[in-house]
Computed example of a mutant assay.
Amino acid sequence: MNTKNGRWVQILDVSEIDDTNMVGFEIDDRQIAIYRIEDSYFATANVCTHAFALLSDGWLDGDTVECPLHGACFNVCTGKAMSDPAEIDLEVFETRVTDNIVEIFLPEEAHRMADT
């Protein structure tokens, strides 16, 4: 569904991701990670802001994801960089569940950047 400022994108069925787990996806040439913490879903950029590594290849402990390359940690709820060597926060995406499908909101700016 498109809106004035972006669009909602269907990602996966809630049954496809276990509690306290994460899955990586590519949407419009953007790497995005979906995290399930209890019955809540969060989405961030899937690439570490310190060096290229997919966070979904790392480790999820509670609401913290650890990069598999150099061990930088991020809060998956806020995107906040929590430890060195990362100093830049992750981009976060709004999520919702509609009819058991996890969706993320892809802002128009992000969509335009993906098209360039």
Results as ranks from 00 to 15, higher is better:
Thr78Ser: 12
Asp89Gln: 07
Thr95Ile: 09
Asp61Phe: 04
Asp89Lys: 09
Glu87Asp: 08
Asp61Cys: 12
Lys80Val: 10
Phe105Lys: 00
Phe93Asn: 01
Pro68Asp: 06
Glu108Phe: 12
Leu60Tyr: 03
Ala110Phe: 06
Met82Asn: 09
Leu54Arg: 07
His70Trp: 00
Ser83Thr: 03
Ile104Val: 08
Thr78Gln: 01
Glu66Trp: 08
Ser83Val: 02
Asp99Tyr: 10
Glu94Pro: 02
Asn75Leu: 08
Trp59Ser: 13
Phe74Gly: 01
Val97Thr: 12
Ile88Trp: 03
Glu109His: 13
Cys67Met: 07
Ile104Trp: 04
Glu109Gln: 15
His111Gly: 09
Asn75Glu: 12
Leu55Met: 12
Arg96His: 03
Ala86Tyr: 04
Pro85Cys: 08
Asn100Gln: 05
Asp89Trp: 06
Asp89Thr: 08
Leu54Ile: 01
Phe93Lys: 05
Val102Trp: 01
Thr98Val: 15
Asp63Tyr: 07
Leu106Glu: 01
Glu66Asn: 13
Arg96Gly: 05
Phe74Ser: 03
Cys67Pro: 05
Ile104Pro: 02
Glu94Gln: 13
Lys80Trp: 00
Ala72Tyr: 11
His70Cys: 10
Asp89His: 06
Phe93Leu: 04
Trp59Glu: 15
Leu60Arg: 00
Ala72Met: 14
Asp61Ala: 10
Phe74Asn: 04
Gly58Ser: 10
Gly71Met: 07
Val92Cys: 15
Cys73Lys: 00
Gly79Gln: 05
Val102Met: 09
Ala81Leu: 05
Glu94His: 11
Glu87Pro: 09
Val102Leu: 07
Glu87Gly: 11
